[in-house]
């Protein structure tokens, strides 16, 4: 059985991949942002605490921050986004991933929301 995607209140998704965790931006957040045109991403090796700013995500309209949904070390950054930031819009859950973290505690992932809960949370936030 595949791992289930979890979501943070700051609109990132996390999915466990073995001992690491891939992080991206939720479909809801991407819809809100509109066309993504530039991302300022961290260097591999950076240590992040839960809630730290991972980087900036620029849409045509505005800049937003990406936050670390769990604590961990950045072990990979999606280099594709440098040339193709639109991947975040086109495939937010796939090719538009942002970073891979080596979590301090894999159990942190289990504290995040399931999709159904997140969808309710996002709908309320929008209202």
């Amino acid at each position: 059985m595949g791992e289930e995607r979890r979501y943070s209140r700051s609109h990132e998704w996390v999915i466990r991949e073995g001992d690491s965790a891939r992080v991206g931006v939720s479909e809801f957040a991407v819809e809100q942002l509109g066309d993504v045109v530039y991302l300022e991403l961290p260097a591999v090796g950076k240590q992040l605490n839960r809630g730290d700013v991972i980087g900036d995500i620029e849409s045509v309209k505005a800049v937003s921050q990406l936050y670390a949904p769990i604590s961990g070390e950045v072990i990979a950054v999606n280099e594709e986004l440098e040339a193709h930031p639109e991947l975040v819009n086109e495939d937010p859950l796939g090719k538009g991933w942002i970073v891979v973290l080596q979590p301090v505690d894999l159990g942190d992932i289990d504290t995040l929301m399931f999709k159904a809960d997140y969808d309710r949370f996002a709908a309320e936030e929008q209202a």
Binding site: G34, D35, V37, S59, V60, K61, E86, N89
Partner: peptide, 20 residues
């Protein structure tokens, strides 16, 4: 359209995406 408040009106900020 994605609608937003603008100058007292609810206005379309984008339909298919700003760049397109």
């Amino acid at each position: 359209a994605k609608m937003v408040p603008f100058a007292g009106y609810e206005m379309p900020i984008e339909y298919q995406g700003i760049v397109a």
